[in-house]
């Protein structure tokens, strides 16, 4: 009888949590597997023990351009990578929608923009995006070395498309990565993301 009850209980828990999995700060990051611009497959579990940054992006979105044109996103990527952080750019634009690219085009964008992500994940079905609840480009999720979502939200504190605002804004991603590196708790673990809608 106890087994019956345990079975029933666990069954319901599994059913409900699977259907509604989402990246929540303080909870284990949802596991995913995705293909990058070179056709290589990556799973979140491949990076166990490392801090992982997930950057939702769309190269035509003015909010994304704000950071790439100013070279700030590239700067952030290089600084993070130097600290052993795995930086994954994710493109969830559906085919035919703004920001959708082929693997070759994604690689060209990386070269042209002198960007430095560890990989660019092509998520044209929006599976990973919806799993994490990515709403905007840019939208950031930081998974700490324990596999727990340590930050979710905006790149910085000033909601605009103007590169001139970058200097005076608080960069939440840089701040969170700095705190994680120092072994501290992330002081601002959750913010409202701003940007273009993800083109699912």
């Amino acid at each position: 009888m106890r087994r019956l009850f345990t079975g029933l209980f666990l069954g319901v828990v599994m059913l409900t949590s699977q259907a509604f999995a989402a990246a929540e700060v303080g909870k284990p990051a949802p596991a995913f597997t995705a293909t990058d611009s070179n056709g290589k497959t990556h799973s979140l579990s491949d990076f166990a023990g490392k801090t992982v940054v997930l950057e939702w992006t769309n190269h035509d979105c003015p909010f994304v351009k704000k950071f790439y044109k100013a070279g700030k996103m590239q700067e952030l990527q290089r600084a993070a990578t130097a600290d052993g952080v795995v930086w994954l750019s994710v493109i969830s634009s559906a085919p035919g929608k703004e920001g959708h690219v082929t693997g070759a085009a994604a690689n060209k964008l990386t070269t042209d923009r002198n960007a430095a992500p560890a990989a660019v994940l092509l998520d044209e079905k929006g599976t990973v995006g919806k799993l994490y609840g990515a709403k905007t480009t840019p939208h950031f999720f930081i998974v700490n070395s324990a596999g727990v979502v340590a930050y979710a939200g905006a790149i910085d504190s000033i909601k605009s498309t103007d590169s001139a605002d970058i200097a005076s804004a608080t960069n939440y991603v840089a701040q969170a990565l700095g705190e994680l590196k120092a072994g501290k708790a992330v002081s601002i673990p959750s913010t409202q993301a701003y940007g273009c809608s993800v083109k699912y």
Binding site: M14, A21, A29, A31, L44, A48, L131, A146, G147
Partner: peptide, 9 residues
């Protein structure tokens, strides 16, 4: 699994 990344459940 404490201290290790974990799949969603």
């Amino acid at each position: 699994t404490l201290g290790k990344p974990q799949a969603a459940h």
